[in-house]
Design a protein around this nucleic acid. Structure first.
Lengths: 109, 109
DNA sequence: CTTATATTTCAAGTTTTATTGAAATATGGA
DNA sequence: TCCATATTTCAATAAAACTTGAAATATAAG
């Protein structure tokens, strides 16, 4: 992941509707859910849901697939993993676990 | 970390100036750097640097300390760790390493 | 007390992002 | 073909975030 994609992905995660879409889709599992179902779940109008789903798909957080008239969206876990890796690599100098990153012993005080 | 703080922290990381401030301060180590040095490093005017440093400090990403006329800022690694934990907990159902989160085997395909 | 340095705060303007509702596109069935 | 459903796209507006430069605050030194 490069800086441009990291910025876009952090931006995608910084909106409450999109963060709730992500949480909903994580719960809903591997088949994904339709744009309509997602919109209802997060209480967004169709066009608003579509707008946020497009943003999340552009950054790579979600992947979409049309099945007949419906479009299914699901989480791209690799994208989340890549973001975490980017954050840990750049912010914790290569330590690659949450534990070593967050250990107070490593935090200068 | 709650949803509100996660949103604010993702927002703090979604701006290129702030992301570069974070990277700079990670490199610069535990004593921190002054607002002036940080501003020069990321090519921001004093007021712009101050604005972004305030945003980052409010979310908990940075901590500040005045020493005489200067204000030193440094990274709060716990904040980054908490954010990663929030992301992994909510997005990967409790698996707490990057590896298990991102393993394609767990990704339904 | 005055001046200089470091930083923040404020108000104004600009840019970006988000919302809304209507219209357009895509698919499937009668 | 015509109609219904699902979703997206578009244009207009609204809201939030960012930038700028000037003024204010805080600290220190002469």
């Amino acid at each position: 992941m490069d800086e441009f994609n990291a910025l876009a992905t952090f931006g995608a995660l910084s909106n409450v509707t999109r963060l709730r879409i992500l949480k909903y889709l994580v719960r809903m599992g591997c088949n994904g859910k339709t744009a309509g179902e997602i919109g209802k779940a997060v209480e967004a109008t169709p066009s608003r849901a579509s707008f946020h789903l497009a943003t999340m798909t552009e950054t790579g957080l979600l992947v979409s697939e049309r099945r007949s008239r419906e479009i299914f969206y699901k989480v791209n876990f690799n994208s989340i993993g890549n973001l975490v890796h980017y954050l840990i690599h750049d912010c914790c100098k290569g330590n690659n676990t949450v534990q070593s990153c967050c250990n107070p012993k490593d935090n200068c005080e």
